[in-house]
Structure formats: structure tokens, C-alpha cells
Nucleic acid binder design. Structure first.
Length: 294
DNA sequence: AAGCTGCTCAACCGCATGATC
DNA sequence: GGATCATGCGGTTGAGCAGCT
């Protein structure tokens, strides 16, 4: 049995939206909101449009916080950095650019920025320009927090976490601290940890924290064991972890951690490695989320 | 002026995922 | 646990436009 269509295709208008339709949709949404049901919305609003079309029109064009106009150099850099790390996950990239939509970013990348990037005219990271971490100015202890408490779990993982703006150094011992802080141990204030599913992770189940104990992440050596490895040669470090249950791993990733853990640039990059060994998602922790360094 | 070409970007499509029953 | 439905996402399309010949 095939999938039921989301609307009666024969009786809905398609193609560009007229100013009248825009006004109708906008005034309806401003007065009533979506009502939690985009499919039923066009009928209620008096529009002969598919609900999906209404949703797209609102999200990509009519929303009041949409930023129209050209992209700034800073935005270019952010897009290039993130594309380099996570690929074409446009909604994730757009979430880092206030006022920009995934469609905007995708179109901009495909038509302009990609060429610019390939020509080396963007400052953002490309495939050969990861920064390694220096060994100075290291934080002794890292904690993290997030005020992001709503939204789908899949998106949450991109929004949570911590950052080390201005501090781009981590020794392995500090990584130990970081990962310890990812457990319930050493949490100075439970209010920093709104994600309740985090509680059941035990520090001794994060094997990487016990394997990386003396060497600096910033050097070019590698550390390996049967269950974890660390290597940096101008590329991001990779800390793999194969302990813990899937639920624990999922909980970790929901909190901004991924496997393996990549540390790049001025922050820490967490990225998931899929079963086929491809890197398929990640989280770049931003400075606004960092609450505690001492 | 007409025709062609390439570019832009709004919109659509199909699939994946999550929620609900 | 499976079926159904709504939503979100990334890939793709195509209308409209500008520039060129």
C-alpha cells in the first residue's frame, strides 16, 4: 500500500505565491498560529494550498525574523566550516546563522559559495586547513551548560554543549576532565545539566577518559589501545569510544557528544561515526554555551 | 529586437523520522 | 508492534531574470 498523499493534489494551487496569498497566510498565522497542524491550516485560513507548501512559505519567506539579502563574510566562513565538517546538513548549518533558512543556505552554497570555497576565497576551513591545538593557556577544568531545553532531540544535539572560545588548548589530562565532567561526577551545579537522560552515564563507562591520560592532544603523536585512539597530524584529533550501551551513547550524543570526538579549531567538535565508517553528524560547541571554566 | 545561455532562488518532491492510536 | 499521519529535511526542478550575441 502506497503512502497517502498529504493533500488533494488536484484541488490545490501550486507555483509562486501571490501577495494576496502571502497576506492571508501571514495574518492567519499571526492571529492563530499553526494550531499544531499544518495540513489543516490552509483550509482554516481559506487558502487553496497544500499544508506543506504553507509551511515552507512561512518558514522560508514570511517569518518575521527572516534575514533577506546577501551573506556576510562571517556567514560565509561559518557555512564553509560547517559544510566541511558535517556536509550538506543545511538545517544544522542554518541553525547557526540567525535569520537564515536551510533553503537559503543551500541555494547560496550551490550557486555561489561552493565556487568561492573551492577557489580558496573563503577564510573558513577547507579540507586541509584544520588548526591543531596549541599547548598554552589550557583550561584546568571545563564544565558546560545549555539553556536549550526545547525542540526535537535530533536538533538538540547540535545546540547543546560547551565551548572554549579563546582557549584552544587541551592536554589529554584536560580531556579527562572534560569527559569526567560529562558524567554526573564533579558537577558543581545540577542546574547546569537540564538533560535528565544524562544521569545514568557512569564515568567508568566512557573508556576514552581512562585511556587518554598523559599526552597532549596538541601534539602529532597517536595514542591507541584496543578501545580508544588519539591522533593528530594537522587534522582533527579523533577519540574513539566503544564502551557503554547504545542508550548511553545516544544520551551522550544528545548532550552534544559524539563518537569519535574531534577537537578542532577553537572549540571542540563532536562527530558521530556511522556503521559504514562515514562521519555523519556532529556538534560544534559554541562559546555562549560555556558556563564554567576554572 | 530576438534568441540564447547561465544564474538565482522559490517551490516542489520523496523519503526519513517521530508521534499517536 | 504495526499502521497511519504530520513534520522536517535534502535533493531537484523550473520560472523568471540578466547579460550576451
Amino acid at each position: 500500500m502506497g503512502r497517502a498523499p498529504c493533500c488533494d493534489k488536484a484541488n490545490v494551487k501550486r507555483g509562486p505565491w501571490s501577495p494576496e496569498e502571502d497576506a492571508t497566510l501571514k495574518s492567519y498565522l499571526e492571529a492563530h498560529g499553526t494550531g499544531g497542524n499544518w495540513i489543516a491550516l490552509p483550509k482554516k485560513a481559506g487558502l487553496r494550498r497544500c499544508g506543506k507548501s504553507c509551511r515552507l512559505r512561512w518558514l522560508n519567506y514570511l517569518r518575521p525574523d527572516i534575514k533577506h539579502g546577501g551573506f556576510t563574510e562571517d556567514e560565509d566562513n561559518i557555512i564553509c566550516n560547517l559544510y566541511n565538517e558535517i556536509g550538506s546538513r543545511w538545517s544544522v548549518i542554518a541553525s547557526q546563522l540567525p535569520g537564515r533558512t536551510d533553503n537559503d543556505v543551500k541555494n547560496y552554497w550551490n550557486t555561489k559559495l561552493k565556487k568561492k570555497w573551492l577557489a580558496g576565497k573563503v577564510n573558513g576551513a577547507n579540507n586541509s586547513s584544520y588548526n591543531t591545538m596549541s599547548t598554552s593557556n589550557a583550561p584546568a577544568l571545563l564544565g558546560f551548560a545549555s539553556n536549550h531545553t526545547s525542540g526535537s532531540p535530533n536538533l538538540d544535539m547540535y545546540h547543546r554543549g560547551f565551548s572554549v572560545s579563546g582557549i584552544n588548548t587541551f592536554t589529554a589530562a584536560e580531556c579527562q576532565v572534560i569527559y569526567d565532567r560529562a558524567t554526573t561526577a564533579n558537577v558543581p551545579n545540577s542546574a547546569y545539566y537540564p538533560y535528565t537522560g544524562f544521569d545514568h552515564i557512569k564515568s567508568n563507562e566512557i573508556e576514552v577518559s581512562s585511556k587518554v591520560s598523559t599526552s597532549s592532544i596538541s601534539n602529532s603523536s597517536s595514542i591507541s589501545s584496543s578501545s580508544s585512539s588519539l591522533a593528530m597530524d594537522g587534522k582533527p584529533s579523533l577519540l574513539t569510544c566503544n564502551k557503554g550501551t547504545l542508550d548511553e551513547a545516544a544520551a551522550m550524543m544528545d548532550f552534544g557528544f559524539g563518537f569519535p570526538f574531534d577537537a578542532v579549531n577553537n572549540g571542540i567538535w563532536f562527530q558521530e561515526r556511522a556503521q559504514d565508517n562515514s562521519l555523519n553528524c556532529g556538534s560544534y560547541i559554541s562559546s555562549s554555551d560555556l558556563n564554567y571554566i576554572c
